[in-house]
């Protein structure tokens, strides 16, 4: 059994040497994070599940070519983002939302309490409605803008890491975030107090 401390590099090296169990450990380690990335880009659980399978299958096929020039984390995220963006281009307007349940912990989150308490009481704000509105607003963004918002605001990645994964400059990341936030302010006006 692997300890959680086994470094990614060691698991990668063992996978490259033909140890499929080492790759399983990488799947366990990376799937929750990559799930969040793809799910927030697609707003669809089934699409996310299929894509995630494809992403890990591609990573497994290509891992012999991974030379460690970037971290395995960056390499995996690059594969995931590129495949998700390609998928979104193909999916185009056929999309339907299929949202995951919201964890019960949100009810105690001060940010949630604050967001819903400021909400216009005539709309009977509730969790489901907020979730739907947030996802609808996200899906109105362009794929590129949604990607940076997902990585920065939802996943909490630093600008430099996003720039490395997307192979764009730090300035481009910041500018995409600025425009995306401005658009989201328009879509989510009812939740914002001025």
């Amino acid at each position: 059994m692997e300890t959680p401390e086994t470094p990614d590099e060691e698991l990668v090296a063992r996978t490259q040497a033909g140890d499929a169990r080492a790759f399983d450990q990488l799947v366990v380690r990376f799937s929750p994070r990559l799930y969040g990335l793809v799910y927030n880009m697609t707003s669809n659980h089934e699409d996310t599940n299929d894509l995630l399978q494809d992403i890990f299958a591609k990573a497994y096929r290509s891992i012999k070519g991974f030379q460690g020039k970037s971290s395995f984390y960056t390499w995996m995220h690059s594969i995931a983002v590129n495949m998700a963006i390609n998928f979104l281009k193909k999916r185009n307007r056929r999309m339907t939302m299929s949202l995951d349940d919201v964890d019960n912990g949100i009810a105690n989150d001060p940010e949630f309490i604050e967001a819903t308490s400021d909400y216009d009481p005539r709309h009977q704000a509730n969790l489901g409605e907020l979730q739907k509105k947030l996802n609808e607003a996200m899906m109105k963004l362009s794929d590129e803008h949604r990607t940076v918002v997902t990585m920065f605001d939802i996943q909490g990645m630093p600008h430099a890491e996003i720039a490395k994964i997307l192979k764009i400059s730090d300035g481009t990341v910041r500018s995409r975030l600025f425009y995306a936030h401005r658009q989201l302010q328009n879509y989510l006006q009812e939740f914002i107090t001025t």
């Binding site: 399983d24 799947v27 890990f56 940010e111 967001a115 605001d153 989510l188």
Partner: peptide
């Protein structure tokens, strides 16, 4: 405020046991 709202999306999670099943499906 937008950033705070977006952070709430972290609470959207797949059903419990999803990631264990995911590994089996992958294998």
């Amino acid at each position: 405020q937008i950033s705070k709202l977006l952070r709430l999306k972290r609470y959207e999670q797949p059903r419990p046991g999803y990631f264990e099943d995911f590994l089996q499906e992958f294998q």
